[in-house]
Design a protein around this nucleic acid. Sequence first.
DNA 1: GTGAAAGCGCTAACAG
DNA 2: CTGTTAGCGCTTTCAC
Lengths: 345, 345
Amino acid sequence: MRNSSAPRLTDIAKRAGVSIAAVSIALNKSESNRVSAERRQKILRIAEEMGYVPNELARALAERRTRLLGLVVPLRDPIFFNQFIAQALSGIQSTLMKRGYNLLVFSPSGKPGRATRDQILESRFMDGLVFINTRSCTAGDVKRTIEELDRAQIKFAMINSYYGRAPINYVGVDDAAIGSAAVDYLTERGHKRIAFLSGSATLPAHQQLVKGMRRSLEKRGLELKPELIGCTGYEVERAFQILDDWFRTKRDRPTAILTADDQLLLNLYDYAEQRGLKMPGDIAVLNRGNSTPEHHLRPRPTTLVTPTLRMGELAAELLIDSIEKPGTPPQRVLLPFELVQGATT
Amino acid sequence: MRNSSAPRLTDIAKRAGVSIAAVSIALNKSESNRVSAERRQKILRIAEEMGYVPNELARALAERRTRLLGLVVPLRDPIFFNQFIAQALSGIQSTLMKRGYNLLVFSPSGKPGRATRDQILESRFMDGLVFINTRSCTAGDVKRTIEELDRAQIKFAMINSYYGRAPINYVGVDDAAIGSAAVDYLTERGHKRIAFLSGSATLPAHQQLVKGMRRSLEKRGLELKPELIGCTGYEVERAFQILDDWFRTKRDRPTAILTADDQLLLNLYDYAEQRGLKMPGDIAVLNRGNSTPEHHLRPRPTTLVTPTLRMGELAAELLIDSIEKPGTPPQRVLLPFELVQGATT
DNA sequence: GTGAAAGCGCTAACAG
DNA sequence: CTGTTAGCGCTTTCAC
């Protein structure tokens, strides 16, 4: 904290010969007539002279509002390394800046016996929370989280991977539509044996993608073969095993792969490099993910881009609306995705 | 904020039939004998039953301590996209977690008329600041920042690019040593015409790198030719111009390049790809930077790796020490770097 | 228009 | 050991 001898409202009040209330009003409510113009001038001048800066902590306690939003990202890995999160965060920050809020990134499991994560959530430091679901969030996890937050009456907005029915502030993409679009795109290019490389079958996004793929495949009399759905558990060895299974057998070898996220795409690139597999010669690759991390991948991957930055912006927007206008009903927004043509298809 | 009907110390005190002070002590000072064991038990039980969670805001106001640290990153671009910052942040978070602090990422220039950045810095929301200097910080900027912070008596720790003499908490690398090591490495491999691709000559890191390079070159009777120092201003076009200048003229063409950071390295890769330049065949490349973003660059760049994560950890450590133990003298730490052999040299 | 006073919820010094 | 009291600095009734 700053030097504790900082000037307070009291100090200004004394110097100006007015009440502390007058100072508070003069400084904060520029509209109000409760203080006369001349008085206000004098107060403002003195505050300026003394270098007054309000103590936001005291203000927050009195107003019951901190203008601080918390960020929750259930992920083991350092969250800042993750490009998806980095983009969402940038979007969030951009909105917060516009609307005068700040972001509190808390450190889960702080000192033993104090400030555990859940305590922090409820500790009144934040006006609300932004939740970014990650690949470690199953549908059940998400559901439980929502129930807890509702019970604690904490305002929040969620990003990514919620397909439940609870009325919450949510921003995501329609993964079923993405799966469907992926199949449309690939079948139009003559692919019939399409594989799906995913992290885990328990993830909501996985389920939606599969659903969408099936929908589109069936429309064409094709099917998504169970053996062409591979779940790596986000382990490289497992990814390589799966890919070996697919490519070592000549029969029924897939001609195209949809990767469920950037990390799986990178695994695939590593595999292709190591095994001498050419893209798109030996295998066509389509990715669902962000575009940033791929700038320097060669060949450039064809990607169904999720608008992650925008998701962050919007989620923050919804959250702040629901904080500032208490009546506002929760909104669920599904953002459109975009196909960015690369050299892997 | 959370539901405002949350139980307070008063509520527990009433229910337990004790004073509010007793409750506070029972809950917070497990060591103290000021409250008897049985009473403590009773109080703890009741607090548990009522689902008591302390209001950190009120606590902070009374204790004059928030356990919140602020992050300042002077950079126009979205800071979370930057791998250097992502790594430093991860390090910072890791320390904060261990020591029970949280991180406040504020949004510069909030609502007009209120909460400008500087005000937030002094608004008592934070116990201290972590400053990450970036490529937009000249020596003068940094110096001014330090003066301001000192004047406002704000505790802080700085990361990166400070070579001044002020006694502050600082963690960085010795860029002169890096420049020197780069030259040693390249000359040992027979290179004599070594170029330096940098962002701007006004950056402290630039100056140190040049100093180190010169030192090592002169020891060998070589020199760093002024025309082989290129400053891109972090603009791609300018980078290409400079590289064209170097490579279009056959005479005095450099045989090796040291890039001052990851972004310049990427510019160089783009250039090499576009002009059909082979690394290391046509040009040897050595980079100063992080290793993460390069995982999927081909060929893999040889890199003098700065331990950015560790820098974040340590800076946070120093800052918290200086907050918690007021007498602690500021420390300046220069971390060692490491050479990671790639395929570009 | 203006000021006094009552909180916001907690900590800590002080008196028993 | 225990309770009372005085803040922390600000906002906001509520009388005048």
